[in-house]
Amino acid sequence: MPANRAVAALCLLAYLAGPALACVSDPDAQRMTPETEAAPEVYAILGPSVVSQPTGLELVVCPWNSGAVSSVDVDAWMPSHQHGMNYEPDIEALGNGRFAITNMVYHMPGPWELTVTVRAGAERASYVLDMPIP
């Protein structure tokens, strides 16, 4: 009987973890650091970044208790120079918490921070990801 309970417990754990594990399957996805408590996980799948050339990325917002994501804002900030990008990125909702971000232009090499704000209903969460641009 104890073996059956252990198997049942493992099955239950796998069932409960399934949605979280299924949120992102891309091995290149980088988890963004939340700046808001109780925020859902957000992952960035970055495209190649070349200085002064448009690039893109994909954002994946894991399921949130507040419901569906109503909007996503994306920007980048260069802390050492205290400035952001010269262009506004384009954001396209792909469905299932996925967003295509294009027209990201890092006009200087060095350390940048990708910043993301996600809204679902009345709730809002902010994230950051350090990005070195060669």
Rank of each mutant, 00 (worst) to 15 (best):
A38M: 07
P79G: 13
L13S: 12
S80R: 09
G121W: 01
C23M: 03
H81N: 15
A29N: 02
S25H: 11
Y87A: 15
S25T: 15
V50Q: 11
T117Y: 02
R98T: 10
V50F: 05
A38D: 14
V7L: 12
P109N: 08
L59R: 14
V24C: 08
L57A: 04
A20K: 06
L12I: 06
G121E: 05
D90H: 11
F99C: 04
A125K: 00
A9F: 09
E113G: 03
N96D: 15
E37A: 15
P27T: 00
D75C: 08
E58W: 00
H83K: 13
D26E: 10
W112D: 08
T55H: 09
C11L: 12
R5M: 09
T36Y: 00
P63E: 08
D90G: 09
D130I: 01
V105W: 02
P111Y: 07
V128D: 03
Y43S: 12
S80Q: 12
M104A: 13
P132V: 02
G110T: 05
L21K: 06
T115V: 13
E35W: 02
L57D: 01
A38W: 02
Q82H: 10
W64M: 03
E88T: 15
T55Y: 00
V51C: 06
P109C: 03
L46F: 00
D90M: 07
M131L: 15
P111M: 15
